[in-house]
Amino acid sequence: MPNNSDSNVSTADALTLLLHNQHALAAAIEEVTKWLSENDVEDVADNAVVAMETLDTNAKAITDAIMRLRQL
């Protein structure tokens, strides 16, 4: 399959926007987690921490994909 530079750039740009959204969601979850912890809702706060860890893991994979696309 031939390299399509314009397609790669468009895909990388779209993934970058999704990554920015993911960072925004993580920040919001972090704020809610802090509030939950301060208000003794530890079980829910713990679940939120797990969600943030998943966002972090996926953000790394998205970042790697963006970098590969931009190198083509």
Rank of each mutant, 00 (worst) to 15 (best):
32 V>W: 03
62 I>H: 03
4 N>R: 05
68 R>L: 07
23 H>W: 06
58 N>S: 03
68 R>C: 02
48 A>P: 00
1 M>L: 12
39 N>Y: 04
38 E>C: 04
71 Q>F: 00
18 L>M: 12
20 H>K: 14
45 A>I: 06
53 E>L: 08
30 E>Q: 13
16 T>P: 01
27 A>T: 12
50 V>P: 02
55 L>H: 08
3 N>R: 08
24 A>S: 10
28 A>K: 13
16 T>A: 11
50 V>T: 13
30 E>V: 02
38 E>D: 15
65 A>D: 05
6 D>G: 05
58 N>A: 01
61 A>Y: 04
25 L>N: 10
72 L>F: 03
55 L>Q: 09
34 K>E: 08
31 E>Q: 14
2 P>F: 09
27 A>D: 13
4 N>Y: 04
6 D>S: 11
57 T>S: 14
54 T>P: 01
16 T>I: 03
34 K>V: 13
45 A>K: 01
36 L>Q: 07
54 T>L: 10
39 N>T: 15
36 L>P: 03
68 R>D: 09
9 V>P: 00
28 A>Y: 11
38 E>W: 07
12 A>T: 04
67 M>V: 12
61 A>Q: 12
2 P>E: 12
49 V>R: 10
15 L>K: 04
54 T>E: 12
34 K>Y: 07
7 S>Q: 09
1 M>N: 06
45 A>P: 05
63 T>P: 01
17 L>S: 11
5 S>G: 01
13 D>Y: 06
38 E>A: 15
70 R>Q: 11
51 A>C: 07
63 T>C: 00
64 D>W: 00
19 L>S: 09
11 T>Q: 07
44 V>G: 02
21 N>H: 14
2 P>Q: 09
17 L>G: 08
32 V>M: 06
20 H>Q: 15
54 T>W: 12
40 D>H: 13
31 E>L: 14
67 M>I: 09
22 Q>C: 08
20 H>M: 11
57 T>F: 09
66 I>G: 02
36 L>M: 15
1 M>K: 05
13 D>V: 11
55 L>I: 14
44 V>I: 14
40 D>F: 13
50 V>E: 11
37 S>G: 15
47 N>W: 07
37 S>T: 15
11 T>E: 09
31 E>G: 11
64 D>N: 10
13 D>Q: 14
46 D>K: 07
66 I>D: 03
7 S>T: 05
56 D>S: 13
14 A>Q: 11
48 A>N: 07
29 I>P: 00
54 T>G: 06
2 P>K: 07
